[in-house]
Design a protein around this nucleic acid. Structure first.
Lengths: 142, 142
DNA sequence: TTCACTGCAAAACGTTTGCAGAACT
DNA sequence: AGTTCTGCAAACGTTTTGCAGTGAA
């Protein structure tokens, strides 16, 4: 912890574009790519540049208003999230996500890290699976 | 489980390039990018094309001989790994990694998923921190 | 008036692919 | 011979950036 701890929090102006991205995020609960969100805005007639979507998502993530995760092939997916620390149970097929909490896991990761002399610990944990709807859909398909 | 379960396991020919990549992987225990590994081979005088490095790492990952993880900015990192299911405690600064097991976490993820009706469950879990060496180095630095 | 924000197009990034030739079995 | 593998360079898709212009305070 240094003395320059507090970031000079750049003010965040409420522009039309940012409002549009924020509204888009409120309209779904699954994880979506920046490009998906950009397309969604396009469909709604809200013209926002792709670069702006990226920039806005990044700012919101820094502010803790959205969660980001990486797919297996490195693409970033975004979703509005609650303020408290949590993880996600994500459907591999449709992206549907459920926020989950696991106090025991939090404790375990901290303990393991300390045990090995690691400081300043954080962790990522995502659970993937096939949600009820997708499971029955694929069963019906074949 | 279908009747076509067994993948027609394409034979994996032991070429000079593959041996070189395998040896490179054996020479470190931290997570490295494909480009790093390619550079390492270059320094050693082992000329292997970058595309071949990528192709080889992918095959080895499919075969379960190496673990891959994604950095926060989407880059893939690779490392030789043991056959049993495990997770990693990774140093953010130097990439040093320790394999860790957490049976309780495994159980917990399965239970959470079932509880929400998710099938075919998998999960990713990485613990990040600053290893002892890097922590003392950065303390000495400032 | 000032400074953040935006759009666009260009660039950058890691990674993948097509293809002709080389190298295993 | 019949494959599989390799190198190269070109292509890819996502994300970032430079810059001139726009808009909020």
């Amino acid at each position: 912890m240094t003395s320059t701890e507090r970031e000079t929090a750049t003010e965040m102006r409420p522009t039309r574009q940012r409002t549009a991205v924020a509204r888009a995020l409120d309209s779904f609960t699954d994880f979506r790519s920046a490009q998906d969100i950009h397309a969604l805005l396009g469909q709604r007639g809200e013209k926002v540049g792709l670069a702006t979507v990226y920039r806005t998502l990044q700012r919101m993530a820094e502010a803790g208003d959205v969660d980001a995760l990486r797919t297996e092939d490195g693409e970033a997916l975004w979703r509005r999230c609650s303020a408290t620390h949590h993880h996600h149970l994500v459907c591999r097929s449709c992206g549907a996500a459920v926020e989950v909490e696991g106090p025991a896991v939090e404790r375990w990761t901290r303990a393991i890290a300390e045990e090995h002399g690691f400081a300043d610990v954080s962790h990522t944990l995502e659970i993937f699976g096939s949600c009820r709807d997708c499971t029955s859909a694929s069963a019906a398909g074949s």
